[in-house]
Design a protein around this nucleic acid. Structure first.
Ligand SMILES: [Mn+2]
Ligand SMILES: [Mn+2]
Length: 321
DNA sequence: GGTGATC
DNA sequence: GATCACCAACGCCAC
DNA sequence: GTGGCG
């Protein structure tokens, strides 16, 4: 159930009002659901001066886009209670007594133990994550109901400390060539930090083995063909500071990547932003996409992510690699 | 950030 | 009411 | 076992 535009507008108005007052209050999310919030006027991104309330308003306004990215997926949280420049910690298990609007399910952890986890897909859940300073809320590649069937797999391009972003783009286009050659399609987005994510939607009932093998084959082929620019070597010291690390290792159970449309805990409050492949040109700067610029972009380009992720690649190809 | 203990 | 201590991940792999 | 890694 996705709230209407009018309902979302009511929520952003409430957030605005609470932030302008004491910063503490209760947000009415629906007829009988509400969320207690606090410190909405506290700055969590010092450089642009972005508050917790502004992040909540961003998530509310892009909710129609974000919802399908998070729906039914266990989340891994990274929390920054003192702002994105402060200390952080990861959180896997749901807290003991989460508010009613937060979806929690008993899930088998990768190690095989039952644990209570936060599940994405409701606005209340996402606003709660922001409330507790979880500025990164990363979804698993499986959904409750099919917890052993990954429905996407990712090739994660991580630039070294001295790689120009143009080099990330170059490698991304080589990955695209490899995908084309194999007859596969994929979505591309900024990671929100310094790299790029190339996400390959998988057919139903795909296995972890497929999710782990497909990106690996492509990554090794690209790094093998372009050793000057790309590498799959794991130790940083043996990697070369201006090469792009083609990371195929983010596809095991419990590993995650940033959600499309999700904010990152970076100084600019940048957002992992879906792109058209033809936008991968030298002028592209991932820092241009922030919670303050995304609304305008979405108005013109619409949802570049949902439709691609809903179109699985053929099992015939993906399982025979 | 949330909670429970303590002065 | 203010202050404080404590809590909040994990799997893989090379060595 | 410990450390590096994301
Ligand atoms: Mn990355
Ligand atoms: Mn990575």
């Amino acid at each position: 159930m996705t709230p209407s535009a009018a309902a979302l507008r009511k929520i952003t108005d409430q957030l605005q009002a609470v932030e302008a007052e004491s910063g503490d209050g209760v947000i009415q999310l629906g007829r009988d659901s509400s969320l207690k919030v606090s410190n909405l006027a506290k700055v969590f991104f010092p450089k642009p001066g972005i508050t917790k309330g502004e992040v909540m308003r961003y998530y509310t306004s892009v909710w129609p886009y974000l919802r399908t990215v998070l729906a039914d997926r266990p989340l891994s949280l990274k929390r920054f209670p003192d702002g994105v420049a402060g200390k952080f910690f990861f959180q896997q298990k749901a807290p003991p007594n989460p508010p009613d609007v937060v979806r929690v399910e008993s899930i088998k952890s990768p190690a095989g133990e039952i644990q209570e986890r936060i599940i994405g897909g409701t606005l209340g859940t996402t606003l709660y994550c922001t409330q507790i300073g979880a500025f990164e809320c990363n979804p698993w590649n499986v959904r409750v109901g099919s917890l052993s069937d990954p429905d996407f797999t990712v090739i994660d391009l991580d630039p070294g400390p001295k790689s120009p972003f143009a080099r990330v783009i170059e490698v991304a286009l080589w990955v695209k060539e490899a995908l084309d050659h194999l007859g596969l399609h994929a979505g591309v987005k900024t990671s929100g930090a310094t790299g790029i994510h190339i996400v390959i939607p998988l057919p139903p009932k795909s296995t972890d083995a497929v999710a782990e093998r497909v990106p690996r084959l492509i990554a090794e082929a690209v790094a093998g063909a372009h050793p000057q620019s790309a590498t799959v070597v794991r130790p940083i010291s043996k990697r070369g500071s201006s090469k792009i690390y083609v990371d195929f290792g983010q596809n095991a159970r419990g590993k995650t990547i940033a959600a499309a449309y999700g904010v990152r805990a970076r100084p600019e409050a940048s957002v992992s932003t879906p792109l058209r492949w033809d936008e991968l040109t030298p002028g592209l700067d991932p820092r241009d996409f922030t919670i303050r610029t995304l609304a305008a972009r979405l108005e013109t380009v619409g949802d570049l992510w949902g439709p691609i992720m809903k179109r699985p690649n053929p099992a015939r190809i993906v399982t025979t690699l």
